[in-house]
Amino acid sequence: MVETTGSGATREHETYGLTPEAPGFAFDPGDPWTQTFQKGLERANLQGKTVYEVGIGTGINAAFVLRMCGASTVFGSDLDPRLVELAERNIRSLSPEHAEQFQPVKGAVSLIDTEEARAKIAQTDVVIACLPQVGDPDDSRLAAFREAQSVPLASGADERAEDHIAHYYPWAMFDEYPFNAVGLGLNEALLHRIRKHAPKAEVVMNFGCRIGADIIFDFFRANGFEPEKLASQMVRQDAGTDISFFVALEKALTGTGLEKEFVCEFFADEKGDMPLSACEAQTLSKRDPDVALYHEVCVIHGRPTGA
């Protein structure tokens, strides 16, 4: 495994025998989130299925489901138009025998908000996605909420990494969705669109469980999907991802009598034996910026109810 970071640099990671090209603007395919996602995808019974990946990234998951899970066709799109081109190259080099089974939706595609993307979703059996669950630190409404709770932005959180859009989403833009309150607005917008354009499609989605798995299960049920956890792994909190959003959520409940009903789930150890609230995690992080903090990442299969 080779990793060099920095502008224009390329990371190379071997994942399940696959080594993709991974420039800095793409989400790192060697990240444990990807490993967890692929464990879930292996268990999702994708043999012979048509799959659409929303947020194709490097294409590592598309190559994986074609090569290791036996999917018949994979569609893919991304908000960053460079990524779909990258994914095409990676799939061609990683799994040339399956290259023809990948059908990219080119251009900048937010969720599935183009005619071509919607047409492909309508032909899809299973939609897969790993979308950001943290509001953009630059979002003015989110900043106002954070400031109202007297929660400062974490040091360095205002610096924009090359793969910024892989970690954050424009929070206020998705405020029509109820679960945006806890950072699931972008994911909820996707489920809403899938219900509309592919009502029989199943979903397999990768989540950070910093807000707790229970509320993520509520999120699926509220949007017409019966959830099942396919895979789970404890991962180290990304040092570059700001957790002040989670701290603000906890603080906003102070004095409401609901403080114990919503506590974020961080851990001081990789086994998950030492739980920490977001406030506690932030305190440790302020004391030692290099402190290891962990949270669960889980893969959830959603089966449409009533389909």
């Binding site: 909420f145 405020d175 109820p178 309150a181 806890v182 906003a252 409940l253 409401t256 609901l258 009903e261």
Partner: peptide
Amino acid sequence: CSGLSTAPTVLRIKQ
């Protein structure tokens, strides 16, 4: 706030 339990409903209202 449909689908939300009490705690996230309070969060959404405060936001």
